[in-house]
Amino acid sequence: MAQSERYGYAVSRLRAMESRFVEAPILQRMLESEDLSGALKVLGETSYAQWMADGGDGRFDQIVEAELRFVLQETHRFVPDVELVDLYRIPYDFHNVKVILKSAFRKASGGSRRWELLTPLGTVDSGDLITAIESEDYRMLPFGLGGVVPDCLALWEQSGDLLEIERRIDGQLFKTLRSLAAKSSHAGIVSWIAARIDAENVRNLGRLKRFNSDIARVTSFLHKGGHIAIDQLLSIYSEPFEFWIRALTFTDLGPTLGMLSSKDSDLEAILVDMERALDDYITSVIHRYRYDPFAPENILRYLWMKEMETKNVRIVLVGKSNGADRNLLRGLLRHV
């Protein structure tokens, strides 16, 4: 059968799974419910119900994680190229590596290890990662981490600069994602990763601006491979935020950023809005393939939307358990 139709089964299946998304009306009902247990009852009518059998109301984080894990494992099973699912799972591998490294740092200063923070969502068994790092057998580490981890350990010995260590690991993460996308040779996937890198770069730019970092430092935090050149981003860094929107008008991000209210000069409020807008931008990039019944990009789209869904569910549940204001929560929800 032709190469392009390989995704027919997977995409169709995901289409059917899509109909079970927790969509706006359900989220609305969860928002309207009195308290946490009421919201959970509404959630119990969705696909999350299968994880709700045991445990009390406080366990909603486990419920959300179980659902995410189930979806990742299930799609991993029937998607023709598992790299597509790996694009979502690899960040959790990097999370695990960070947990192991930080545990080592803590242990050196008399703290305890925090193995309970390891997550099974990654592609590599966390036990293998622990063995590789603790036995200093760095060649066993996947995704080019073999070179990064010893550097990080040395850096910690020398300066204890945690931010720099985090930056290196994050940089490696985006490098890995980029090379994985390039390997899949689907234009949509490559451009989606580029869009994600763009979003990440703009987000970092905004965050670092708040900390008033100098430009040399900002340079090191921008990742290569986005649609927008790093030089262009650096050139707008010293300008006020309103200028950014104008400067980026002619990039892919233009329409998304243009919707932000630029008259609001409060950088903090803008950042939160911008984060949501960037998430919506990434959604819109992957939405272009929505109507192609055989596009592998639809796998990414489903997983991305699932991630947005878990974010929304978590926002509502956390909000409900803390008695946050309904209208505030509504403003935070991502578009599905």
Partner: peptide
């Protein structure tokens, strides 16, 4: 045969879930 095959593949995908 190819046409029915493509459609069948998608049909199987949908029917797995529903």
């Amino acid at each position: 045969a190819i046409g029915v095959g493509i459609a069948g593949q998608c049909g199987a995908g949908v029917m797995t879930e529903d």
